[in-house]
Computed example of a mutant assay.
Amino acid sequence: MNPAVRDTYGPADLGNNPVFAGGFINFGHWQAIDLDRPLDEADRIRSQQDLYRQVLRAAALPDEPEILEVGCGLGMGCALTLSECGRATVTGMDIHPEQLQRARDTHADLLRREPDRLRFVQGAAECMPVEGKGFDAVISVEAAQHFPDLRAFAEETSRVLRPGGRAAFASFFTVDGAPGRPGELAALLDTFANGLDIARPVQQLADALTGAGLAGVHVESIGRHVWPGWDRWLSRWWAPETWPRNFLRAYERGILDYYLVTAEQPR
């Protein structure tokens, strides 16, 4: 496991930071939230839920879908999926054992009530501990920026998707493959400097999905609905020119963007 991932999601317990109110650990989708007024915790939680809703809509789920979430963290998205997607069955997978234990503790009542609809398993995106062709959808929300091998992730996604199944991922990537992008981001953002986030072009993920045999790969920029709201929320704790505020700066400079990437397993 990447040491930065191990520490950030282990002893540091990122989900307990108030900047990630509600425990979803994502930057949020702020389109439905008025950014011209003071933001509160309810707005923040709504933004994170709405990012999951964007991904779930893009997954075009069938009735009673079986869903795998890669990088489930505290399992808040798994619980949201169960509550909003009919008779879905959800497997939340994460590489970090401490995160999985927190997920199991957080959702202990739900696991008792719905033992056949929710489970958590430990595994890496590049080597998923699940059977092949077992899922109608593979989703991932703001985790792919950590995955060391996007090609292996794409191949595993293809392996576990049923014919006609959909992949839907939301995360942030560089806008192109210019050689200087990693250095630019490392100079602006501590998470790229310390290796927690990996600077790669979104096309690398798209090409990996195509190479793994998935069809209809589509990349959509949703940064306009992510970065301004995220920056407004960060302003509660961080002054301009401090490194967390540089996410918006990197977006405005055309270095980094936030994307929704989808693909389908051919029938």
Results as ranks from 00 to 15, higher is better:
Gly254Cys: 13
Cys85Ala: 10
Pro266Ile: 05
Arg151His: 08
Val138Phe: 04
Ser221Gln: 09
Glu264Ser: 15
Ala60Val: 12
Pro38Ala: 06
Gln54Pro: 04
Ser221Gly: 06
Glu184Ala: 15
Arg200Pro: 09
Trp237Phe: 11
His225Arg: 04
Gly86Ser: 04
Leu214Thr: 00
Thr89Asn: 05
Arg44Trp: 07
Pro163Ser: 09
Asp116Ala: 12
Pro163His: 03
Ala186Ile: 02
Phe24Ala: 08
Leu80Pro: 07
Ala168Pro: 03
Phe247Pro: 03
Ala170Gly: 13
Ile67Pro: 00
Arg159Tyr: 06
Pro163Lys: 11
Arg37Met: 07
His107Val: 06
Trp238Met: 05
Glu264Asn: 05
Leu150Arg: 00
Thr91His: 02
Pro228Thr: 05
Ile255Pro: 02
Asn246Arg: 14
Ala215Arg: 09
Arg267Thr: 13
His225Ser: 10
Gly28Lys: 06
Thr242Glu: 15
Asn26Met: 10
Gly223Ala: 12
Phe27Asn: 02
Ala154Gln: 00
Gly10Asn: 12
Glu66Ser: 12
Asp207Asn: 13
Gly123Ala: 09
Val19Phe: 09
Gly86Tyr: 11
Arg117Asn: 05
Pro3Ala: 11
Asp50Tyr: 07
Gly164Cys: 05
Arg200Lys: 11
Pro97Lys: 10
Thr106Ala: 14
Cys78Asp: 09
Asp116Met: 06
Leu74Thr: 14
Asp94Ser: 14
Thr89Ala: 10
Arg200Ile: 04
Glu184Arg: 15
Phe247Gly: 01
Gln203Met: 12
Thr81Gln: 04
Thr91Tyr: 02
Ala125Leu: 06
Asp257Lys: 06
Phe173Trp: 15
Phe172Asn: 10
Ile67Val: 15
